[in-house]
Every structure is written in structure tokens, then in C-alpha cells.
């Protein structure tokens, strides 16, 4: 399990201000993602798990509490510094893949390296190698619309990992895939987690998917209601892996 902390959140809150109304999406979340961990983030819609994902990935900033990603306090970073932190530390996998259209698989995978300032030749080499690791070494120059859903998500996973991040944040990565393809993608993620030591944090609705994670964090109404790590330390209810379980 543990090791050093890749991400550390202490009493983190996030409140949205919409038309003068304050909407608290997160209300004091404390958790640590360790290097190499495998975490499932579960909870009903509106429980705050997506907000938490965005915060953990440095896409958003907390309105309260302390959030440290890769040893750096998010609140102290400027927008360009935060962008660089995302580039170096985090890999994102989205439910809807978010691949660039009209752009080959290898160029899609190489995209994060563009913003790291890697030259074109090295970009292609590293992207091609990464595509090989996700089993798409023969599809380098295919465009997203020439690939199946499962293949597109593999390209997205390769893109997330091409920068050697410490944390891979996956938001419903199998949500748009059929069960067979989804299972294969999940296996790939688990395999990469095991092989490369990248921490995997996955938001999911699927109880079966969540059950495979080493650690489960359940959320409801903007707070963590169950954390299998913390629970196992405090009270032994580790088995409840269902969505919204533990409340």
C-alpha cells in the first residue's frame, strides 16, 4: 500500500457561487493518496466526487483547507505553475475520452509533451512507445473516428501516462464502453498501476468496478462518509463497497 503521499488534502472545501448563492460542493474532505495506490471514489450524483477529482488533479482550487499535490501547495501556485504541475504530476482519463478530432492517435498521445517542450521526434518516439504499451502499436496514425470506443479510451490512457505522472485520475473510464470492452480497459489500468507504480484514482458508479480497488472512498453531500483505509483503522466495515455504502 502506502509509501510517500502523492496528494494530500486536509479539510478541503469547495463552494461555488452561482448568482449570489453559495453552493457547497465539498465540505471538509481530508484524505491522502499514496504513491502507487489504487482508489475507487464512489458516491451518488452530486455527492462531490467529481469536484474532488478536479481538485485532486489541480484543475480547480479549493476555497478552504489545504491541498498539496506532488509536494506543492495548490493555493500558492499561479495558473501557469498549476498547469505545469498538472502536466508533470497528473494524468487524466475521462469518460468521454476527449481526444482531439482530426488528429492521429500518436499526436493525441504526444499532446502533453508539447506543453512540456519536448521536441517533435522525441514526442513521437515516446508517444509511439506508450501506444505500444496499451496495445495500440499498430494504430499510431489512425484518427479517433477510425478507432473503436475501447481503442479510443486506450489512446486516452496512453496520453495520460506519456508524461510519467505520479497519479492517474480516471473519471468513469468505462462509463461509455460496453462491459467486455470496459473490463479490458479496467484491466489495462490495473496492469499499468501495478507495473509503473502510478497511483490510480477512479471515480465510478459501478459497484463491481469499485470492488476491485484496493481502497474505496465513499462520498455523500460533499463529505467522505467511508474510507476503507481509515475505516479499517477505526472500525472494520471494509466490506461495504456498494455505491454510497457506509452511510
Amino acid at each position: 500500500m502506502s509509501g510517500t503521499a502523492a496528494i494530500e488534502a486536509v479539510d478541503v472545501s469547495r463552494t461555488y457561487h452561482l448568482d449570489g448563492v453559495s453552493v457547497p460542493a465539498l465540505r471538509g474532505v481530508t484524505l491522502t493518496v499514496s504513491a502507487g495506490d489504487y482508489v475507487a471514489l464512489i458516491g451518488p450524483s452530486g455527492s462531490g466526487k467529481s469536484t474532488l477529482m478536479h481538485l485532486l488533479g489541480g484543475l480547480d482550487r479549493p476555497t478552504g483547507g489545504r491541498l498539496v499535490i506532488g509536494g506543492r501547495a495548490v493555493s500558492e501556485l499561479s495558473p501557469p505553475e498549476l498547469a505545469r504541475l498538472r502536466n508533470e504530476t497528473i494524468g487524466f482519463v475521462f469518460q468521454a475520452f476527449h481526444l482531439l478530432p482530426r488528429t492521429s492517435a500518436v499526436d493525441n498521445v504526444a499532446l502533453p509533451l508539447v506543453y512540456r517542450g519536448v521536441n517533435a521526434r522525441q514526442r513521437r518516439e515516446r508517444a509511439a512507445a506508450m501506444l505500444g504499451r496499451v496495445g495500440l502499436g499498430h494504430r499510431l496514425d489512425h484518427r479517433p473516428n477510425q478507432l473503436s470506443g475501447g481503442e479510443q479510451q486506450r489512446v486516452a490512457i496512453a496520453r495520460a501516462l506519456v508524461t510519467d505522472p505520479t497519479v492517474l485520475l480516471a473519471d468513469e473510464p468505462t462509463g461509455n464502453l460496453d462491459s467486455t470492452t470496459g473490463a479490458a480497459v479496467l484491466e489495462l489500468l490495473e496492469q499499468l498501476n501495478a507495473e509503473s507504480g502510478v497511483a490510480l484514482v477512479m471515480v465510478t458508479h459501478d459497484a463491481e468496478v469499485a470492488a476491485r480497488a484496493r481502497r474505496r472512498i465513499a462520498m455523500r453531500d460533499g463529505v467522505v462518509v467511508a474510507d476503507s483505509d481509515a475505516d479499517s483503522a477505526a472500525s472494520p466495515i471494509t466490506g461495504s463497497a456498494g455505491a454510497g455504502g457506509g452511510s
Binding site: 498547469a83 476527449h98 506543453y115
Partner: peptide, 16 residues
């Protein structure tokens, strides 16, 4: 917009 979001997620700075 989504492309911009993605580019930012993978490390594009506002300037980029």
C-alpha cells in the same frame, strides 16, 4: 471549448 479544457488538463498554460 472542450478542446481548450483538455489542453489545459494536460498542461497547457493560459498563454499557450
Amino acid at each position: 471549448t472542450r478542446e481548450i479544457g483538455l489542453r489545459k488538463a494536460v498542461g497547457a498554460r493560459p498563454r499557450d
